[in-house]
Design a protein around this nucleic acid. Structure first.
Lengths: 328, 328
DNA sequence: TTGTATGCGTTATCAT
DNA sequence: ATGATAACGCATACAA
């Protein structure tokens, strides 16, 4: 078994409290220099490490933060996770990653699911309303949640990304470029008609007197999206402008178009959303709506730390604007 | 405070053991159907979720697995993490992610670091020797480790990827394509001269009577690598063949070459290593050494599960071969 | 079929 | 400056 405080205490013929005090190094505790040195030395020699579960049980804190997103396979979420990973590491927190998928929302599992053991939750990209029940069942009552991304709303702390003006610029860009058939590639979800991209797409097309053309994908995975786009183009002809709900879809769409013998940007103008690094590493220029990821993450983590320190403060919110980035 | 077993027990005027038994649903426990229903109903109504720390303290199990890699910002490690995420989720484990960087290896921090609280460790891409001490200080003594990737060795369970034959094919491919200046883009690390890629590169070049040309990068980040390559090409002229230690570098190298006005594959033939998805989504064909990622992860997880179940079984090892994939 | 007692390893509280 | 004791919430072992 692992070494405990008591093992060290016995070895030194002191009480385990003395050992605990030395190791925790609280400012109000007075300890002789010699005992301190002895304890430290013995702890190191015996290879002591604290039992985190026991600490958690008594302090109520875990030192862990959960990052949850809808789809950990998508590059954008991975980039966000990486941002948080670095922020958390600096503050000596550990990160758990997870997805909120169907398994979380399945009510038959709710009681079987054991509660996640974290001090706080960074929740990306989910409309909180849909997940509130699931969250309440899966996190300790006291663990605060900060929501972030383009779909935030509600009474909890959040960092919201406003896609609206950037999306207007994006669709207008396609219209102004002379595109006659502008399609929207997206994955429908509950409430997706209220999504800024979806609404702006319809609105701007309507203003321009054009007919919307929706390409539905039902899977985040690139091969699936690629094939959907290829099939679509082959069966219905090729749009000359395409807005994609995210950069993951944009990358896959690019290949689907390529498969169908279409070139970007000569045959089709392509616009994505998110601003993932991979889009910068292409030969075909793909414009995109970039999200201020670093600031979003930084703010969300600040909010969460503040909330964990004091649950009584008023709701913290921030509103950041996305930006339409033209690549020619 | 959160609801505990005792709260439910009081409510129902039974002992908390009865409640515990119902909720744990052990096969050997006999409970009246009515009490079972009452407990379940009350637990749900009161919103009970078990306290994981308390469970861990008494059972010794956390339900968490750590995945550690050298660089969570690199796409390949993220893809591996995602594989494990899915595997673990299927088995109801949670995943913690981390990097083994300098902060872990700093001995002055060793005692200050609290031990990670996991049932097992999936360790990717590290030569275990360099990290053994750090690992012993950071994981519970009993938490088994499975090492995986191209650098495994030692007495612990591992899934090793043999890059050797594929690397030979890769460098020969460059030679046979008529390249006269073949460079190797890599990041030096302790022991990197023993790396299969490094050795094969030198060996095949030597057989072909060519002079090695090393391009050192000291940062995983794409912008840094991109600039290193651009500067190199501009100051020393352009190689006509390039082997990159990984696909992350290959992508960045592609842009660096592009910045310097060079085209792939007409001016330079480029070969990467790992097989990340992003390389498939380029217009310039970049050949690469692909690693059997899915099987590697599947095996590693099998090994770890078996080891967690029984620590006495003999060392488990597997050897998988990488494959050189030509893209024209 | 249900209840009681004990202990997991730590920190908090109160004593000395 | 140090020690004794209780408590955190749960599961295990044993009783009834």
């Amino acid at each position: 078994m692992a070494i405990t405080l008591l093992d060290i205490a016995k070895q030194l013929k002191v009480s385990k409290m003395t050992v605990s005090r030395v190791l925790n190094n609280k400012s109000n505790d007075f300890i002789t220099d010699t005992t301190r040195r002895q304890v430290l030395e013995t702890a190191r020699r015996m290879g002591y490490t604290p039992n985190r579960a026991a600490q958690t049980l008594v302090t109520g804190r875990t030192g862990r933060i959960a990052f949850w997103s809808p789809e950990m396979g998508a590059r954008f979420y991975q980039e966000v996770a990486y941002q948080f990973h670095n922020l958390l590491q600096n503050d000596k927190y550990e990160m758990m990653v997870g997805e909120f998928g169907p398994q979380l929302l399945d009510p038959s599992q709710a009681l079987g699911l054991t509660r996640l053991d974290v001090d706080g939750v960074l929740m990306f990209g989910g409309k909180l309303g849909h997940f509130r029940n699931a969250l309440e069942q899966n996190f300790p009552a006291k663990a605060p949640i900060v929501n972030l991304g383009a779909l935030c709303e509600g009474s909890l702390d959040y960092v919201h990304i406003d896609l609206y003006p950037a999306a207007v610029n994006a669709v207008r860009f396609l219209v102004d470029s002379g595109c006659k058939r502008i399609a929207y590639v997206y994955m429908p979800y509950e409430g997706s008609e209220e999504d800024a991209r979806f609404r702006v797409y319809h609105q701007v097309l309507s203003e321009a007197g054009m007919t919307p053309e929706l390409i539905n994908v039902n899977d985040w995975k690139r091969p699936a999206v690629r094939q959907t786009v290829r099939d679509y183009v082959q069966s219905r002809g090729c749009p000359d402008g395409m807005l994609c709900a995210n950069d993951e879809f944009a990358l896959a769409t690019l290949r689907g178009l390529h498969d169908a013998g279409k070139k970007v940007p000569t045959d089709v103008r392509l616009v994505g959303c998110d601003g993932i690094e991979d889009l910068e590493y292409l030969d075909s220029p793909v414009s995109t709506i970039t999200q201020p990821m670093e600031e979003m993450c930084r703010l969300a983590w600040e909010f969460l730390k503040r909330r964990m320190k004091n649950s009584d403060i008023p709701q913290q919110t921030a509103e950041l604007k996305a930006n339409f980035l033209v690549r020619q």
